[in-house]
Structures are given as structure tokens and as C-alpha cells.
Simulated assay, not measured.
Amino acid sequence: MAALFLGINANAARMDMVDVSNNNGYMSTAEYVSMRNEFGVKALTVKISEGTTFKDGYTASNIANGQAAGLYVNGYHFAHYKTKNQAIVEADFAGETAKAAGLPVGAVLVTDVESKEANNQSQATNDRNNAAFMKEIQKFGYRADIYTSGSWANNKMTIKGKTGWIAAYPYVVSGKNWYSTNHAWQWSSTAKFRISYGGFDVSQLNSNYYTADQKSTIKPTNKDAIKANNRKANKNIYKPAASAEWVNEKKTYTLKTAVKLRTGASTSSNMIAILPAGTTVKTDQAIIQGGYRWVRQPRFNGYGYLATGPASNTLEYVKSGATNTYYTVKYGDSWWTIAQRNGLSMTTLAAQNGKSIYSTIYPGQKVIIK
């Protein structure tokens, strides 16, 4: 494993695996070859399905073109199940859809657990449902795993060592191998590839699970480019100011995702509570320090503090209560097409609507475009 995964650049997070869906549009074999040769991508994980009705329209072409480029190809299903029986039904739907699209036997078929349904369940319920999904998916000849966010791992659901694909986007990427005991760490949702449009989710593989414990017979052709491109992707690094002061900032925020409320403006401060997505927070002051932008919430017995994003303020977890402009989704729209028309990235568009780019949108639905 060391030769396969650690030989390129030990000081930078690697772009070992990329995941794609209909939101990325049609992806050609040439694009996947470029990812492999110039960026060191080894594995591809393709969206298969969502819930019990949605089938990704690009699954078959992504599988075929990824295989033609010499990548290991896996799949994922965006889960909405709330019960064990629903998990089994979704697994059957995902397995049948994957088979029909050509996902090879022995590939990993992941359950992507980040939905509002899972957020409303107890850890024990999520564990039971995830176990049922993974057991059922193996009946189709696929290996199973769980994808979720770092804040949900071992909080909303149990993710044991030597399992799991964990998403966590640090503001200083280089120098630390996050989630090294799990199969994979998704460290960016905005990676750029030379001949592909838009931002991509990229992950570092910390085991051979997503490459079926094999070495690819097709090797990258430009190792110097891989080193340079991986370093470039790691460049989103915050450089702190010499000093910081609290400033008055009376605002009302609506949380896009769950955020930890702490006793002080530091990630080492004790946690008061985890505020769920949709919570309204009124603040009176803000500060830039420790790599984050913090705000202060007056409470009945003092103050609570939460990070709204990095100090550069380019990745906000929350949005202020300003007047928004909405777009009504039409038939054939996707996060990608709407984002492109409005000069946004898919990730930004989905995030400002409190969604992920894997969330399904429907004709007639209103989305915030600014």
C-alpha cells in the first residue's frame, strides 16, 4: 500500500479518487485520462441512484469511460431511508440500477448518508439502517461502505476504523493526513482539472479498498505534473493576520448545515451544543482568528461562539438574512446548468440553498441564485 498511495507527495493531500454525477455533465474518456496522467487519479466513484426513483442519467457513460481510461470504477447511492425496510428497498433499487448501468461486480457501492432524514434519526437508528443497506447491497456482488461528513461520523452514525469514506474540508490541507484510519478522505469539493469544466470532489485513499486491493496496470505518464497539480490543489491555505479584534456585527443567520456552538472562539473550546441546519442565530460581534471567522451569540447565561467559515470568508457555512433572488427549476435543469447560467459554482449554488450537489431538484422548485 505504501508504494501505491504514498509515493507521489507525502506533504500534500492527493487526488487519488474523484466522484462524479449528472451535475458534472457528460465526462469523456479523454477527461478521465487527463485526470489519471496529470493529477494521479486512480479511482472513480459514480453516482448511481437516489432514494427509490432517481437514476443518474450519466451513470453508464461514466462507468464505461472511466474504465476505458484505466480507472477503478465504483458507485454511490444517495440515501433517504428512515427505516430498516426502507434501507433494504433502496439497496435493491441501487443494486439493480448499478447492474443495469454496468458497474462491475466487486466494485464498491457506497451509501451516501447526509440527508435531512438521517439528520433527524438517532445514531442507533442510522447504524441499523446503514447496516441493512450494506448487507443487502452485497447480494448484488458489490462491496459496501458509508460516505458521510466528518461532523456526522461517530456522532450521527458509527464509522469504525478500516471502514468509511469521510468528507472534511480543512482550510490548511497540506501536512496532515486526516481520517488516516478510514478508507478515504474527501478533502475538497472544488478541485479543478485541466480539460474538465467546473469543480470536482476529490479524495485521498488511505487503503486499497476502492481499488479492489489491486494495482492498476495503467500508470500515470507525467509524475512531475501530478506533484505540481497536487501541490496547487492544496494551496487554499489561510495565512492569519498579525492581530485580531472583535467588531460589532448584529446579524441574523440561518444555518445551512449543522454547526458546533462553543464556549469560546476556538476549535479547542468546549462544545455547548450542535445547532442543526435551519437554526436561526442572532449575533452581536465577530472576529477573525485561529483560521476561522467567528461570531458571538448572546445567550440567557452568557455567550456562545460559532465559526461561519474560514478567515478568508470564501467558504461560509451560513448565510445572512438578506433578500434573495430565486429561480424556478424547469424540466431538464440541474445544479450544473443553473450554476453555469448564473456565474456560480455548483457547490456554491447548492450550499446557499442548504443542499449538496447530490440533492435532487425538481421542476417547479425555487432555488436561491443570489
Rank of each mutant, 00 (worst) to 15 (best):
P298C: 04
E316Y: 10
T45N: 06
S266D: 14
G106M: 09
R231E: 15
G309L: 05
V20Q: 05
K235N: 10
N23H: 15
A273R: 13
N208I: 02
F39P: 03
T53L: 00
G75R: 12
G161N: 15
M134G: 12
K135G: 07
Q123A: 06
V259L: 15
F39M: 01
S61E: 11
I226Y: 10
D127M: 03
V173K: 14
P240Y: 07
N229S: 09
N129T: 01
K162R: 14
N37M: 01
I218D: 01
W178G: 02
N301M: 09
D213H: 15
T211H: 03
P298Q: 03
T325P: 06
K215M: 13
G57I: 05
L4V: 13
Y362A: 07
K355Q: 12
Y292K: 05
G51K: 10
R262S: 08
A167P: 09
Y303A: 08
A311N: 11
V247R: 15
K82P: 00
R194L: 15
P170Q: 10
A322M: 07
K239W: 00
Y58V: 06
G332H: 13
R296M: 01
S174Y: 11
K116T: 11
A191R: 02
V281G: 02
A242D: 11
K219A: 11
D284L: 06
N65L: 08
A60V: 03
V108D: 13
H77K: 10
F93K: 06
G150C: 05
H183R: 00
N9S: 14
T211K: 01
S312V: 05
T280F: 04
T280L: 13
A184I: 08
N129W: 02
T211L: 11
V113C: 06
A350H: 09
Q289E: 08
W185T: 05
S216C: 08
E117C: 00
Q86K: 08
A339G: 05
T283L: 07
S356D: 12
T252L: 10
K355F: 09
T29G: 00
Y358V: 00
K215D: 14
N85F: 04
N230P: 03
S359G: 00
A30M: 06
I48M: 06
E136P: 02
N234M: 09
R128H: 00
S345V: 00
N23I: 06
L71V: 07
L109F: 01
S196Q: 06
P104F: 02
I166P: 03
T29D: 09
K84R: 15
K55N: 07
W185P: 07
T190V: 15
S115V: 02
N236T: 03
N22S: 14
G7F: 06
A167L: 04
A351T: 12
R293D: 00
T59F: 11
V202A: 11
T280K: 15
W246T: 02
I288N: 13
